[in-house]
Structures are given as C-alpha cells and as structure tokens.
Amino acid sequence: MSKVLIIAEHLEGKLNPSTARAVSAAVAVQPEAVDVLVLADRVDAIAADAARIAGVSRVLTVARAENAHPLAAVLAPQIAKAAAGYSHVFLPSTTFGKDVAPRVAALLGVAQVSDVMSVEGSHTFTRPIYAGNAIVTVEADPAHAVVATVRTASWPAAASGEHAAPVEPLGLDVALPSHTRFVELKQGKSDRPDLQSAGKVVSGGRGVGSKENFEIIYRLADKIGAAVGASRAAVDAGYVPNELQVGQTGKIIAPELYIAIGISGAIQHLTGIKDAGTIVAINKDAEAPIFEVADIGLVGDLFKLIPELEQALG
C-alpha cells in the first residue's frame, strides 16, 4: 500500500492553506496513510494546525534551530531522510514547494512530477503544459518514490475541525550543509487577504494607467474584502510590486470571484486564473481576449464603471 508524506508550508508560525490543498491531493491517491512533516525551530502551533486537517494520519515534527527559515538546501536533506518508507512525497506548487521539491527529488534520485492537477491512479497524474493550453497525463515509476508538487489552484483545501491526528517528534541523523544561510526576508505587508488563498480577488492591468490610479483597485478590493492582484504588464510598468502578479510567471490562483480590471487577457495571465469560479471583466476594448473567458463582462471606462459599482454596493 502507498503512504504519502506531505511537507508542511508555513511562515512566522502559521500553517499555509496550501498544505490542506496538498492533503486533498494525497487523499485522492487512496493511500494507507497521509502524514504531514513539519520542519521548524518551533513546531507546536504549526503541528497542532496540521493535526486538525481531515485526512491526516499523523504529524511528524523536526524542531531544529536551522529550520527557523525555509532554506531549500537545509530542508531537502532532512526531507529525503524522512521520506524513507513513503511511496509519495507531496509539496504544494508554491514558491516554497518549487524551491524545495527539485532538491528532494535529486537526493532521492527520481524525476519530479510538477503541478499535479488530478490523480488518475496511484502513480498516474495529469499536469498542465504549454502555459496550460494542454493537459498531459504522466506516469511515475512505481519502483521509486514519487516526488510531486501539487497545483493548489486545482484542489480544494481539506476541511479542518475537531479531528486531531497524533503529533510525533522525528529524530533525523542527517548532516546539514552550511554553505547556505538566511539573510533576510523582504515581503509586502498587508491587512488584505492573502492573494494565493483568497476567495475574492480584484486585479488591475495596464489599462489602470499608473501607480496612483491603482488606488481605485485597492479601494474596490477593500470594499468587498478581496485580495489585490495584477497582470504582468502592470507589474512591469511599476504600478504594483511583483508579489501581486497573477499568471504563468506569477501566482496561480482559484478564487470564487475574480474581477479583472483593465486587463486585456494575455494567455499567460489566463493560465493563472483558469480555475476561478466566476470571472468578471471590465475593459474599454470590447475585443479584449479576457471577454472570451469572462462570465460577466462590462465594456467601458473603468474610471466611470468602478465608482458606479462601488455606489451600487452601498
């Protein structure tokens, strides 16, 4: 029988929702057990959150000072060691997972499976290629462990509740490299919902016109309690920071509501929102590609339409 080890993603003592989405993918494999591995300097709060995720058999913890920050070079040897006896090792297909998974796969001597969208069998998966224009079915060698990243936009988060899996410390005798060290983490601070896990997202594109004009996007987002995103064109133009970019080279998201304002709809951007529930597009160009995928489209000047929309919202 198969056993899946999920590597928990966390930051500043909080478990990232991507971990619960990876659990959903793991459960689809129909394994004998789904274990979550927490590597941190302080593991208790993170492990407690992981233990409440439905479908988790147990939570394994490795508390070391070296694990205070998610350095791939430091985490990978520990994960490879902990993976002994597991048929699958899953990580979310986030910046964290994309950084760590290739090193783990290399240490285990296997080819990584990236962006798992669905599980067709214990070792058969689908994943996107060509910027999401095609879906390919891949089959991993059952003789070796599967190291895979899970496309979080394609999976719902497993429920969290009264369930409490046992938490067990794991002793790993592994030498850690010293050539990589943590310097600092620079990230945007915001009271708005996290872009990658938000249920509602308002995004602006080149059509917004300037960094100052982007305030209209922030205002609408705050009005409806949404996260803020942007197209690559808006990021490249300096309207917003890089961490807000949505698309093939940005964040892949699946909100229930996605409002695209002043975004033409290049294929690279559409790749990042293909799993969204309802897509609303506002653009003055009636021929913009975004209208081909939008559920609701408004053609007109965004600087007139958005204030009217805000007024209607009350």
Rank of each mutant, 00 (worst) to 15 (best):
A254F: 08
D99Q: 13
L172H: 09
S160R: 09
R52Q: 11
I224N: 03
G97S: 12
A221V: 05
L257N: 02
T124K: 14
D35E: 15
E32M: 15
T249D: 09
A233F: 05
D115C: 12
R232L: 12
V36C: 01
I306R: 05
E184F: 07
E168C: 11
L5R: 14
P169I: 11
A294V: 09
A111C: 13
Q196V: 12
D301V: 07
P241A: 07
K284H: 07
P241T: 06
R21T: 00
A111R: 14
S190L: 08
L244D: 05
W155G: 00
T278E: 05
A101F: 02
A312N: 12
H144W: 13
S203V: 03
L91N: 00
E287V: 08
R219F: 04
F303A: 10
R103L: 15
A165H: 02
R103T: 14
G85R: 00
V74I: 15
F291V: 07
A63Y: 03
I224M: 05
T95C: 06
G132C: 11
S114C: 13
I282Y: 03
Y218F: 15
G300C: 07
A140I: 14
A260K: 00
A312W: 09
G225H: 08
L309N: 04
A276Q: 01
R52S: 11
E168H: 12
V43K: 00
T95E: 10
L220W: 02
K223S: 07
D194H: 11
G188K: 05
G132E: 04
A83D: 09
G161N: 02
V4I: 06
L195H: 01
G314A: 12
Y218N: 08
E212A: 10
A73N: 14
G205W: 04
L170Q: 02
F125H: 12
T152H: 03
A230M: 06
L195R: 01
G97Y: 10
G314I: 09
A20D: 03
D173R: 13
E212N: 02
T95V: 11
H69D: 13
K98Q: 13
L313C: 04
L185W: 09
A48T: 12
Q245R: 04
G207A: 08
D222T: 10
I46P: 00
F125Q: 12
G277Y: 06
A226L: 01
L60E: 11
L39S: 01
A157W: 01
P307W: 08
V34K: 08
A145R: 02
I224V: 14
E32K: 15
E243H: 11
E292F: 10
H179Q: 14
V167Q: 07
A51M: 02
K81Y: 14
L71D: 08
L298W: 04
A157E: 05
V62F: 13
